[in-house]
Design a protein around this nucleic acid. Structure first.
Length: 481
RNA sequence: CGCGGGGAGGAGCAACUGGUCGCUCGUCUGGCUCAUAACCAGAAGGUUGCAGGUUCGAAUCCUGCCCCCGCAACCA
């Protein structure tokens, strides 16, 4: 029986245009989703969306002279636009301002409260507006927030609700003891260390008078949920939890394989807090969280002031969707930071897309069609033993390695042409040449098949060209200097 | 002693469970001509940041030091 596969990205905050780092996350998720759906034939629920509550958005909206809802209504579609720009296959797009999501967040709160894990206490301390978090003395670096050294923490006293994270130490350690809970392994050790260093209960609400833009705390009109508590709930609210009228929650979360993708900075939120919240509410924990690296530009973090920000839409417009997908999936390390520069991007485009993949497809198809050799019927590739290394890479979330394998096959095919010289052989031994050309066509067909989750559009083009060789067009025209 | 990542041939990376330093791009030479000035072969190019130590043997382990990057905003 086929499994059901659930995959979700984190929800980007809508206070700025889509970042290429998020493009990386969602393209990785898309490749995995397509792999499970199109190659393994599983049913896939692929979620993404936008995180729309919290102080930063509230402020941003005020800055632009809009009310927060109008502001987010304007920004959310920009993220949905990534779908066509990057050829994404997500099936659901959740907004944390959706009515159902708000309801789900409140229900999750109630369950945690019923369990006795949410309590109210007066808290007085230093508060970092950047993180929207209270700071512990041990967090302070020279009196400032370590994450926001240029912002002065403010002295705040207020009554907040807290979540008893400290009560979940043992359960979290047990959860994290399973290898597959976090990919890659290094990050799992990081998470374990974080838990072992001691967990503090965290504040899960804000006084409404200070921040009204959030989900109301059930049963307390003076408080609004801390944005993280609300946002994390999206992973199950999108499935229809808690009512589960359509049965998706049961099907994909309880009885499916649950995978989340997130940036490497998200460990404490996704693998610690969220998992503890799920445990508290009596909901199954996430099976696997895959953490990717960040994309830097020219050796540095992208920033507007440095002027090295890469706009994913711009790259797509100039070089095409699959050119960017290719870079994100193969040129960037799957789990570590990747350095994007336009020069390197063009270089790898020419070397691997134009000269490698594009040229191979072009030479094989042209040669075959001028000699009247047709593509043998394909099919059954799902079980082709020759593709096992490819499956294994993707099963282990090693997307780059999977792509490396495809390009190894491309190189092998080029070598084979050179060694067997079918273009020459056809004069002396037409039958032998025909056989070789058929093998090459079959190999191109396999390459197209493996490319389905990685470069879906290119994959289709190749398949189409194999059927209609007369209409073959260059897949990736070379980029001039 | 704030935390973390990293220093490898011109560039980007693999090897980091110790045992001939590998790959891609670029460069040079040769081959080929089916193909998108593409493809194939070969070559040049590194005492693996520095200094010690452990070891028969270290890029890989230990110690000290130097340098770069991220940890403010925009932002994943």
């Amino acid at each position: 029986m086929k499994k059901n596969f659930y995959i979700t990205t984190t929800l980007p905050y809508v206070n700025a245009a889509p970042h290429i780092g998020f493009a990386l996350e969602i393209v990785q998720a898309d490749a995995l989703a397509r792999y499970h759906k199109e190659l393994l034939g599983e049913e896939v629920f692929f979620n993404t969306g936008t995180d729309e509550h919290g102080l930063k958005i509230y402020r941003k909206a005020l800055e632009e002279g809009k009310n927060p809802q109008a502001y987010t209504d304007e920004y959310a579609p920009k993220f949905d636009k990534l779908k066509s720009a990057l050829n994404l296959s997500y099936t659901h797009f959740v907004r944390t301002t959706d009515r159902h999501h708000v309801h789900a967040a409140q229900e999750l709160w109630k369950r945690c409260a019923t369990r006795g894990d949410i309590y109210k206490k007066s808290y007085r301390g230093l508060y970092c507006v950047g993180d929207e978090m209270f700071l512990k003395d041990s967090d302070l670096v020279e009196g400032k927030c370590p994450n926001h050294p240029t912002m002065d923490p403010i002295e705040v006293e207020e009554e907040n609700y807290f979540f008893k994270l400290s009560a979940y130490r043992e359960k979290l350690l047990e959860h994290l003891s399973k290898n597959e809970t976090i990919i890659p392994e290094r990050r799992r050790r990081e998470a374990i260390q974080f838990v072992e260093n001691g967990l503090d209960d965290f504040s899960v609400s804000r006084e409404k008078q200070r921040l009204s833009w959030g989900v109301p705390v059930p049963g307390d009109e003076t408080q609004v949920m801390y944005v993280w508590f609300d946002a994390l709930t999206n992973y199950i609210s999108t499935l229809g939890w808690p009512e589960d009228a359509e049965g998706s929650y049961k099907k994909f979360w309880e009885n499916g394989v649950v995978v989340q993708t997130a940036g490497k900075d998200q460990i404490r939120f996704q693998s610690i807090m969220w998992q503890a919240m799920l445990m508290s509410a009596g909901v199954k924990t996430t099976d696997t969280v895959v953490y990717h690296g960040h994309i830097i530009s020219g050796g540095q973090k992208m920033s507007k002031s440095v002027g090295n920000v890469i706009d994913p839409f711009e790259i797509v417009e100039k070089y095409g969707t699959d050119a960017l997908r290719y870079w994100l999936l193969r040129e960037a390390p799957t789990f570590e930071d990747g350095d994007f520069t336009l020069d390197r991007f063009k270089e790898s485009y020419n070397a691997n897309l134009a000269n490698g993949l594009g040229n191979l497809v072009s030479r094989v198809i042209t040669m075959a069609s001028t000699n009247g050799v047709k593509t043998p019927g394909s099919g059954g590739l799902e079980n082709d033993p020759a593709l096992v290394p490819f499956w294994k890479c993707l099963d282990a979330f090693e997307i780059k390695k999977a792509a490396d394998y495809v390009w190894q096959r491309i190189a092998d095919a080029d070598k084979k042409i050179d060694e067997t010289k079918p273009f020459k052989l056809v004069k002396e031994n037409p039958e032998g040449a025909k056989k070789i050309l058929e093998e090459l066509l079959a190999e191109v067909d396999k390459i197209a098949f493996m490319l389905k989750p990685l470069l879906p559009e290119t994959s289709e083009k190749i398949t189409g060209a194999l059927q209609h060789p007369e209409s073959v067009q260059p897949l990736f025209p070379r980029i001039g200097k």
